[in-house]
Design a protein around this nucleic acid. Sequence first.
DNA 1: ACGTACTTGGAGAGCGCTTTCCGAAGTGTT
DNA 2: AACACTTCGGAAAGCGCTCTCCAAGTACGT
Lengths: 352, 352
Amino acid sequence: MTAGTGRVPVGERLPTLEDVARVAGVSRATVSRVINGIRNVDPQLHEMVWNAVGQTGYVPNRLARSLVTRRTGTVALVVSDSESHDDDPFMGRFFADPYFGRVVGGLMSVLRAAGIQLALQIVGTEEQRTRLVGDLRHGQADGVIVLSLPGHDPLPRMLTDAGVPAVMIGRPADPVPINYVDLANDTGASLAADHLVERGCQRIGMISGPADVPASNDRIAGFRRSMARHGHAWVPLASGNFTQESGEDAMRTLLAESPGVDGVFVANDLMALGALLALRDAGRRVPEDVAMVGFDDSSAAVAASPALTTVRHPLEDMAAESARLLLARIDDPSMRISSVIYEPTLVLRQSA
Amino acid sequence: MTAGTGRVPVGERLPTLEDVARVAGVSRATVSRVINGIRNVDPQLHEMVWNAVGQTGYVPNRLARSLVTRRTGTVALVVSDSESHDDDPFMGRFFADPYFGRVVGGLMSVLRAAGIQLALQIVGTEEQRTRLVGDLRHGQADGVIVLSLPGHDPLPRMLTDAGVPAVMIGRPADPVPINYVDLANDTGASLAADHLVERGCQRIGMISGPADVPASNDRIAGFRRSMARHGHAWVPLASGNFTQESGEDAMRTLLAESPGVDGVFVANDLMALGALLALRDAGRRVPEDVAMVGFDDSSAAVAASPALTTVRHPLEDMAAESARLLLARIDDPSMRISSVIYEPTLVLRQSA
DNA sequence: ACGTACTTGGAGAGCGCTTTCCGAAGTGTT
DNA sequence: AACACTTCGGAAAGCGCTCTCCAAGTACGT
């Protein structure tokens, strides 16, 4: 036997704990202890076991292990679309949006170090939701990170009711006792308002996101509040759905309704990109004629021309934090529910 | 008992097949048959079982099922970075790039319909690779989609050696008998070359990607071949690493080396965005002074100004196809190795 | 020398499910 | 009425692992 190579012919039955035990001349239990680093094993046996592991090329079967330990080493990332009816075209947009990638990147930076894998799930229908929660209760994943799409999503509540460790990225639309990580969206919008006013803009409008997203509402509220404080009781507002095209349309609307606009706060960078196009078409220069502040500081902000002055949304950090929170919660289920709110900052570039 | 609600108190032991069997007054085996839709069950018993399922709120335990069926209903998406040493800053960039999102979106469109979940794995070190392959052989996932990052990745070979159903997105750097889905990158580059020449450009340069990526090499080769055919035996070339900044730098280099350049093919849209910036800084108008053709037709192409004429890379379709290929391979492991090559098309916009 | 306490390794009972194997019951033929 | 078939449901053997017991071994105090 060519010891130590650990090669196992393909197609053959994979070595089990039993096999290792036989080779090492000990019992399954002992091998299990050694593998899992539990003390109380004679150093000599310890070594024999490791030799046997090398010789047989043994790799533990995670599935079998999970069945008994009720731990899978997996966290689910659930994209919950409460109003979809299966192949919603929205999903394509969602994944293409830098938002998704930034979240995944942030999560992975933490999970990877912890040796935990991420399982992606999309749920839209009630049936999928029920099934997901059922699977989760069975320990299909140790916990879940929830990304809620627009709408009143029943999933967060279901998750807490089922006692599944969960953390949301972005505040839930309805009050639910669930851990979440969010951005002080209102403060961010205030920052934008303050900057536009300080810059000397007189007629400032806003392009907002959809009304049923908490983050979107907070940005509107924060912006209005700050504008009011600066003496602008009312601000012209047009809304989009966070896509570039919708931003373009919204800007046209805004321009039509308030032709004198000389400053605009756009609730995300992608829409700002569209708005920039609309302004160019209308022959307005940015920032000379109209100053613009975006939101997110996504890659689109740098790609834009002029580069966008925008509110920085530290999504990667937030995602990483949510992963840490979840991991902590998994380790200690009695941990009390908490939320972390990040403070946004303004990134100055050319557009305002 | 409030029948039919299917509610199970949290924290309590979840109902098992055994429980359902007891309630229905049949054996575990019969319940299993009913749940899995196997014929040969008396319609009456069939109904009693379903009633019992409803009453108990039974949800099958996927883990337990997988242990015996050797099917998990999971496909792994492996991002294989052959040269990373753990927390590589490259990963952040990778996820933020629209590339990743488009692939995930394409995969999910197929997997979701098939009721299969996607597990994200990042492997960098040799140890992670070995472990991944070990887990995979144990049926941790039914198959794997591989996304290889730059470099000579040993993973594809390991996967085929281990007999794991796998499909790569993008041709492997080294010849390995593995299923893959790729784009005719050379044809795409030819398209770009032809277009620039037809447009009347006299001095055409290229900004390429990194040298150790097959896709990148193919684009260079295809471009050169086509240019040679048009009588340009040599083309000035600068290279980047597919990021916006590197594109900006490369454009500056190109401009310095060949000031008379009036057309440029940039190997991806993100770099093209950067190149656009460099050209503006240099006071060159696009497309009047310098015409530009990008590659990918990512969201960046539309976001750019002027909007990019670019080679369409149907990544979503390709990812979807790779998922279908993998699923077919899982169903029939004897299926012969095949690859699908997509033909790119040119999308005309403002930049050329 | 005996009892007590602690360490160490093995036997075996599961985790929740699928699936083979069989016997019992039902159907039709001669 | 006896035979061969077919259909159907249950008993039970695992899948590969962990972990609780328990027995044996070792060390110590009295």
